[in-house]
Design a protein around this nucleic acid. Structure first.
Lengths: 202, 202
DNA sequence: TAATGATTCTATGAATCTATAGAATAGCGG
DNA sequence: CCGCTATTCTATAGATTCATAGAATCATTA
């Protein structure tokens, strides 16, 4: 076994997670074979089990890899001292940037995590809920500050923003000609200015 | 064979499409077996091939079933004489209502169509693009009328609205405790009023 | 160089899955 | 009731898949 958690092992394990992410993103969990994943990282099918106990464990690790950092970053944003508006923009930027950096893993988390057994889904669900609640808190602050209109359904708003970001993120992953920064800018613009013209302000 | 396209055949074929939709929605295309689909409609695995030439053809029919009506309805909305605002609201209502009525098929169309061979995907892609273009047209009218702010990126806006509706639609399908009409109302509210307060108007 | 442990390979068992073929049943018209 | 067709069933071939076991190779260190 890999007792010393040697650097080589760590490195190859990361390569394995990335390979699995790429293949799962392309073919889906059930459509991807262990042969596919192995050949993506240049080894043979049987060798893959040196890094994953099972195909399902590979999926679990990819999902966790996909969402972990992204929640951490959200934690930092939410607890920062910046005003509402800046935190909202930072959220969108972080969310969409995550899609660019580790795009396949995040896509896999969104689309394939439901195929994990319930026990393994719980941790991911907690992370996801945590993320949403942090964003909800930002909106609540916005309402308190008067930056957002009274009575806004913050739960709904947070869920919607996540929905927009994921929708665009999926498009970014699928069609990698999209300019991520342009998308970020336009989503931010949409959230702050809406569709209707700012009738009475500058 | 089913030469006269007998009513019973039609009826069972529809049942087959619905069963396939339900199973594909739950397990994904590759995760669903023909045994699953057959037993969902109360017949045996082999009998399924009386209705579908192949599993892949079943997917194609489910996807088409999922999106067809929904585009037709959009066509009617887009070409109606109503003002911009009413057409936008009607679009959201139609989109989300579709999710309630034939929710599994629409979910399958969104999530699994990429597993179809390219030839079969083309027709679906055309339908989807057509839908987006119609919505884009509505936004363009809105800009022309002054209901929307000058310089709004209508392509981006349309794509974003579709993204929001799909995100909520997926939630509706997954968690069927959600009140569809409440979601419709809130999405409409979001689109018209945005997050920020309507500073100078009523 | 020899030895030890890490990493990869080959080979394979057992299960599952799609699709086909032909037999069986059901239902309808005469 | 008979015959015909539509519909469903059973059985199976052939391919693919996941996971395991044990052999082989590579790298490092003594």
């Amino acid at each position: 076994m890999q007792n010393p958690e040697s650097p080589k092992y760590q490195q190859q394990k990361l390569a394995a997670i990335r390979a699995a992410a790429a293949v799962f993103a392309r073919k889906g969990f059930h459509g991807a074979s262990t042969t596919d994943i192995a050949s993506e990282m240049g080894i043979k099918q049987g060798s893959l089990y040196y890094y994953f106990k099972s195909k399902e464990e590979a999926l679990a690790e990819v999902c966790l890899y996909g969402i972990r950092e992204y929640v951490q970053r959200m934690e930092e944003i939410a607890t920062s001292e910046q005003p509402f508006e800046a935190r909202l923009l930072a959220t969108v930027t972080s969310h969409l940037s995550s899609y660019r950096e580790k795009n396949e893993a995040l896509k896999v988390h969104n689309d394939e995590r439901l195929y994990l057994p319930e026990i393994k889904r719980i941790k991911l669900k907690q992370l996801g809920s945590h993320y949403r609640e942090l964003l909800e808190g930002i909106f609540e602050d916005g309402v308190r500050d008067g930056a957002l209109r009274e009575g806004l359904d913050c739960h709904f708003a947070a869920q919607s923003v996540i929905g927009i970001c994921n929708a665009w993120g999926e498009l970014i992953v699928r069609d990698n000609e999209l300019d991520v920064f342009e998308v970020i800018q336009k989503v931010n613009d949409l959230l702050l200015n809406g569709f209707v013209p700012p009738k009475a302000t500058a």
